[in-house]
Amino acid sequence: MTIVEAPVELPVDATTERRRAIQAAASSSLRRRKLSSGIAIGVCWAFLGIAIIPLVAVLIYVTAKGLPAWNVDFFTQSTTPEGIPGGGVWNAIVGTVEITLIAVAVTVPLGLLCGLFLAESNGRIAATLRFTADVMTGVPSITVGIFGYIAIVKNFGGYSGLAGAFAIGFIMLPVITRAGETAIRGVPQSLNEAALALGARRATIARRVVVPTALPGIITGVLLAVARGLGETAPLLLTIFGNQYLQWNPTKPMEALPILIYNNSSQPYADLVQVAWGAALLLMVVVLVLSIGSRLFAARLQKERR
């Protein structure tokens, strides 16, 4: 009886039929879909928890262990040999600050000029250099230490703070270059062209317009690079050697905070390990302050611009 009607199938009927099938599938699979969604989302939350736990644990533990080591002597005295009480990390602070300042003084101008070059050129040379800078970021820090050893220590009279600054600078350089390029590329082309139209020279534009406008990004990049450089241990082990005594002269072997932590922590003397924790806390606080500071500073500069 239905055979007569069957061949004439209106599209609306097909649509309705399919709608029924789809809605049936949708409602019958709803429980399963909601369940798997809930489980997967729950797993994400659990992973967030897993990620937070060790990180917070490190912060709390280092603070708890390091804080008792902090006293006036800790910040003003040099390291004492094992067994002799007292002593501090003054020599390591001097070394770390001096090495970092030297590295910053050389790499910031160099990196910024290079960043300007990258931001203004699009040719094959720029592409190659950009690739090089990226690969440099990926060079293992111990390899940079080896390079510092070969290039400076072997050729220029032995271990020295300068060799350390060279290695740390090498690590900071690509970070500053790429951060500089990114920040400079963010400067609106119209600003650039407006200045050009006024007849300004490119160097003047760079100094007066481009770099100031890109400053928040540049400063963030530099501070992040410094934060990274401060914590590097391996390259310093191969270049500055370490020094128990206060040394201001950067052409001589120096102490630095990461080296002190590394060396002291493997000693069997409790007071030396205690000093290591104190130094770890100090290093961590400085790095965290730099990171937070750069963030806040960049945010404030950006707000003022608006």
Binding site: L224, E232, T233, Y262, V287, I292
Partner: peptide, 20 residues
């Protein structure tokens, strides 16, 4: 911010924590 800041904790600190 907390997670990002912890990227900046010096590696020697992690080593010390791991060891002890």
């Amino acid at each position: 911010t907390a997670v990002e800041l912890l990227a900046a904790v010096p590696s020697v600190v992690y080593g010390l924590w791991g060891l002890v």
